[in-house]
Amino acid sequence: MNFLKKIGAVISAAILTLSLAACANTENSSGASGGSESGSFRTIDEIKAEGRITIGVFSDKMPFGYVDNSGDYQGYDVYFARRIAQDLNVELELVPVEAASRVEFLQTAKVDIILANFTVTEERSRQVDFALPYMKVALGVVSPDSAVISSADELNGKTLIVVKGTTAETYFTENYPDVKLQKYDEYNEAYSALQDGRGDAFSTDNTEVLAWAMSNPGFTVGVESLGSIDAIAPAVTKGNTELLDWLNEEIKALGEEQFFHADYDATLAAVYGDTVDKDNLVVEGGEM
């Protein structure tokens, strides 16, 4: 009897939970398709009237958005965020966000802009509005100084280390069938394999290999940009066209003074080095 009661309680609780989840879902999809009716985002006039803009950044993703030992926000994204606030002539409020909740923060208008190393994808474009890109990511190939691989064609017949499930694995399987792939589950396994000489080179996102080569002398990134290029762009709440247009104009204007190259020198150079061709990572004026 007691047992039956318990089951009843569990079932009714489950139904309630499900209906709540369903509510949240429908809300989600309507917001994504319509967008403009949400109306809770702030226009530029409202931002200026309040004298403050809120921008969502990472707080633990060095060198894009992180908090330094003095407790201040730093990084490539933060540098840009400061400039946006300066040009709007408002105060800047930085909100720490996680990769998983970036879309939600915009959909509920809890921040005006997300500047958190946000890669433009088709699925995300349905949920938020992306401005022009200010950075890009592609594949990179790192190899020992003694036998530097400086183009993807040099890899034919050689052994390339990749991590399972990464874009590097798919790219080389499809485009370079003559490259022998050695696959690992974890990044640290792949890096030790490269250090032990079990393969001729290692390929993954260029930001990743550049940072690694920088802190591991004896290795060079011979190929800095390869494969399809992903754009990284600021995002605003779906339908906030006014702020979106302003951002696009801002990015174009900043291109004239080579702002993002300065941003690179101030934030990324320490991690990726000065010898890197900055144009493989930095996007000026929104032109990829």
């Binding site: 707080s59 993703k61 060095m62 992180y66 908090v67 030992n69 909100v95 720490p96 809890k110 802190s215």
Partner: peptide, 19 residues
């Protein structure tokens, strides 16, 4: 949900000094 408590501060410190 954007509140920085002790564990998050720890992660920030680790990340800022990871190199």
């Amino acid at each position: 949900i954007g509140v920085t408590e002790v564990l998050k501060v720890g992660k920030q410190i680790i990340d800022a000094n990871r190199f």
